[in-house]
Design a protein around this nucleic acid. Structure first.
Lengths: 112, 112
DNA sequence: TCGTATTACCTAAGACTCTAATGTATTGAA
DNA sequence: TTCAATACATTAGAGTCTTAGGTAATACGA
């Protein structure tokens, strides 16, 4: 498991990219997808996830839709236009940050 | 300039690696070195730097030495044994985290 | 059928790390 | 002589996380 400190500031990017790649998702599904894609090494806690989803919704990047399954209600999140248009920049910012960190730490790029 | 959010959790690693690569350094020198290595895109604020240096010292990873230059006093930081032995793991943790993030975000590795 | 695990939503207190602002003082250059 | 740069530092407050807790439906094995 990674030091959770390193996760800070990347959660919004993860959520937005997952929604871009997989269409509408609900909260629990996002936690499972992250676990799967990271081979179990990243575990989103719900205390981090739900406030972030709500914040992104409040900022207009996500919209929600409630779907009933019997008595249970699932809340699906979808990217809005604004949300979708914000992703490319976030990804670029992340990659640029990584690149800078590699320079500062004087490490070799991954894959070379 | 990078979103400062992404910097969170990486400052200790930066400081330790800089000291490993460049020997003893003082606080202001560290801020300048980071600015130089990042081509001006990372600016450590002093409010972040000094508390972190003091914390690393309190944890036994750094030791200090005061050097007078005329009336001015410079405070040099050096890695202790413990500090030096902690670096490899921090670097590996960082690289592992990046690798995981690339998987989760489904990005191509840098340099490929 | 009964208990437990899983699914599924959520909040709240507190820790931690940062930013922005501020303070002090020395040194060097215009 | 005055302003920028050097050099140390602290503080209030913002933001993001962890840990812990709460509620409830559903699925599954004993």
């Amino acid at each position: 498991m990674h030091s959770p400190e390193l996760l800070k500031g990347t959660l919004q990017t993860i959520i937005l990219k997952l929604l871009a790649d997989h269409g509408k998702m609900y909260g629990y599904e996002i936690t499972q997808k992250v676990k799967e894609l990271s081979d179990g090494s990243l575990a989103l806690t719900e205390g981090a996830l739900y406030p972030t989803l709500h914040k992104l919704e409040a900022e207009g990047l996500l919209s929600t839709e409630k779907v009933s399954l019997g008595k249970r209600v699932r809340k699906y999140y979808t990217l809005t236009e604004i949300g979708r248009s914000s992703i490319q920049k976030r990804i670029e910012d992340f990659e640029s940050f990584i690149s800078t960190m590699f320079n500062v730490l004087q490490l070799r790029p991954i894959g070379s």
